Computed example of a mutant assay.
Amino acid sequence: MKKAYLNTDGGSRGNPGVAGFGFDLVNEHGERIVSGGWFLPKATNNVAEYSALIWGLENALAAGVTSVEVRADSELMVKQMLGQYKVKSDDLKPLHMRAKELFSRFESARIAHVYRSENKNADALANETMDARGPVGDYLVPWEDAPASLFDLEAPARAGGENLPEQTGSQHVMMEGSAMEHNPAYTGPGRLSGETYEHAGGHYELTVKDHFDSAHALPGYDGPCRFLHGHTWDIEATLAGQHLDEVGMLYDFKTIKRDLHAILENFDHRLINEVAPFDVINPTAEHLARVIFYELEKTLPAPISLKEVAVWESPLARVAYRP
Rank of each mutant, 00 (worst) to 15 (best):
L150E: 06
L150N: 09
F151E: 07
F151I: 08
F151M: 11
F151R: 12
D152M: 09
D152N: 15
D152K: 15
L153R: 15
L153Q: 15
E154F: 09
E154H: 13
E154S: 09
A155Q: 15
P156T: 12
P156F: 04
P156M: 08
P156L: 05
A157R: 13
A157W: 00
A157Y: 04
A157L: 15
A157T: 14
R158H: 15
R158L: 10
A159G: 14
A159L: 09
A159M: 12
A159V: 08
A159T: 10
A159E: 15
A159P: 13
A159R: 11
G160C: 07
G160I: 12
G160S: 07
G161P: 13
G161A: 02
G161Y: 00
E162V: 15
E162F: 15
E162I: 15
E162D: 14
N163K: 13
N163E: 14
N163F: 14
N163V: 08
N163H: 14
L164V: 13
L164K: 13
L164P: 05
P165V: 08
P165G: 05
P165N: 07
P165M: 10
E166A: 14
E166Y: 09
E166M: 09
Q167I: 12
T168N: 02
T168H: 00
T168D: 04
T168R: 01
T168I: 07
G169F: 00
G169R: 00
G169A: 09
S170V: 05
S170G: 03
S170A: 07
Q171T: 12
Q171W: 11
Q171P: 06
Q171H: 11
H172A: 07
H172V: 01
H172G: 03
H172D: 09
V173L: 13
V173S: 05
V173R: 13
V173I: 13
V173A: 09
M174A: 12
M174Q: 10
M174C: 11
M174D: 10
M175T: 05
E176N: 03
E176V: 00
E176P: 01
E176G: 04
G177N: 03
G177F: 01
G177A: 02
S178K: 00
S178C: 00
A179H: 01
A179K: 05
A179Y: 01
A179C: 02
M180F: 02
M180Y: 05
M180P: 01
M180T: 06
M180N: 01
M180Q: 06
M180I: 04
M180L: 11
E181N: 08
E181M: 10
E181D: 08
E181H: 08
E181C: 06
H182K: 13
H182R: 12
H182N: 14
H182D: 11
H182A: 12
N183P: 05
N183F: 10
N183Y: 00
N183T: 01
P184K: 04
P184S: 08
P184R: 06
P184W: 03
A185R: 13
A185F: 10
A185Q: 14
A185S: 11
Y186H: 02
Y186E: 05
Y186V: 00
Y186S: 08
Y186T: 02
T187H: 02
T187F: 03
T187I: 05
T187M: 04
T187C: 07
G188C: 04
G188I: 03
G188T: 05
G188K: 02
P189N: 06
P189D: 00
G190C: 06
G190S: 01
G190R: 07
G190F: 06
